[in-house]
């Protein structure tokens, strides 16, 4: 059986206490929320914190409220999120992203904040200690080379969060709290294209909330590519949101997930959609623009050329759904399930 390394466990009761502990522990302390990302990584010795700061005893992180828009606690589990009718009705992209994460049991554990901070993934990195030893490790942990592209000076591990692209499309904001203060950052600014330093979150900050603006006039959707109907991380995703005036798009955000070390905003495609109706031609053109943005690498499931090629098709699915087409059949075919919240 794979065993966790030895560690010290601390259980703060408030965000402030957690932030203080995080500051005290420095680089050897890590936050534990649902455990579905950190614990496998610890078992594989990819991450070996000396101290684990468990957040499950922090009630503030599990609160949600709806002033203008929606505030969601980062400690909510993905299933709690999916069961919230406001999420499903008003922010379908977030619902669709969350409901397609991993499996039902894992969604009962994994949290919103955890998925946003999900470690980047790579076939050379998400391996046991012994395996990584056999390749002399990689840049992201214990080694020097990025085996995905040995000449690369930066790590090319893949952003594999489902909810981040969705929240980017929805224009979400996160709140980051440290012992010495807090700040709000747009989700799109939470990430940077570096497989090791993929978050702009400072080490001593805790992601506590996600804030969503009111959804009136917006439609949104999330499409995920993976081999199987459950378990798998995305190896390509398209999140799209558009604000409509009648049939005309007044604002749009198209975001690609899992084709770089961060979710990629397709600014050109998004700008192109503004002022247009989502006709077949417009969708086709926008899909072409979106395709140009993605640069998948050979470090996930499926061949990279194929992943690159189907970006356009997945963008089309998303935009067709945004214009109101019933995409249920395609959903079932591609996602292999109905995207209904389960009890």
């Amino acid at each position: 059986m794979m065993r966790l390394p030895r560690f010290e466990y601390r259980a703060p009761r408030s965000v402030q206490e957690a932030a203080t502990m995080l500051a005290e522990e420095g680089p050897s302390g890590m936050l534990l929320a649902g455990g579905t990302d950190l614990l496998p990584n610890m078992k594989r010795r990819q991450q070996v914190p000396r101290t684990v700061i468990g957040l499950r005893g922090v009630p503030e992180l599990r609160a949600s409220s709806n002033g203008s828009g929606l505030r969601l606690g980062a400690g909510l589990t993905l299933n709690e999120l999916c069961r919230d009718p406001r999420v499903e009705k008003l922010y379908p992209a977030l619902f669709q992203a969350a409901v397609q994460v991993a499996t039902g049991q894992l969604r009962n554990m994994a949290t919103l904040g955890g998925n946003l901070c999900l470690d980047t993934r790579c076939n050379y990195y998400d391996q046991n200690y012994e395996w990584r030893k056999a390749i002399d490790f990689c840049m992201k942990k214990d080694g020097e080379t990025c085996w995905v592209a040995p000449s690369s000076s930066k790590c090319l591990a893949v952003s594999s969060t489902d909810v981040a692209p969705a929240l980017m499309a929805l224009g979400g904001i996160v709140r980051l709290v440290a012992a010495d203060g807090e700040r709000e950052v747009a989700v799109k600014d939470l990430y940077q294209n570096d497989g090791i330093h993929y978050l702009t979150r400072r080490r001593e900050e805790i992601l506590t909330d996600v804030l969503l603006e009111p959804s009136a006039g917006w439609r949104s959707t999330y499409w995920k590519l993976r081999r199987r109907g459950s378990f798998d991380f995305p190896v390509l995703s398209v999140a799209a949101a558009a604000h409509f005036d009648g049939d005309e798009v007044t604002e749009a955000r198209v975001v690609l997930g899992a084709v770089a070390s961060q979710p990629l905003a397709c600014d050109e495609a998004s700008a192109f959609l503004v002022g247009k109706q989502l006709t077949d031609d417009v969708i086709q053109e926008a899909a072409g623009l979106a395709s140009k943005v993605g640069r998948p690498m050979d470090n996930t499931d499926f061949l990279l050329h194929w992943r690159k090629r189907v970006i356009g098709e997945f963008t089309r699915y998303a935009l067709r759904e945004l214009r109101g087409e019933d995409m249920t059949e395609d959903r079932v075919r591609i996602a292999r399930h109905q995207l209904a919240a389960v009890p």
Partner: peptide, 29 residues
């Protein structure tokens, strides 16, 4: 247990009434 990494579901138990994977729950929690 079939993987201890949350990839197979063999270790599912109900924790406070919810199905979870016991291989990814700390005992101390």
């Amino acid at each position: 247990h079939g993987c201890e990494l949350g990839e197979c579901g063999a270790c599912a138990v109900l924790l406070d009434g919810q199905p979870v994977l016991s291989c990814l729950v700390l005992g101390v929690e």
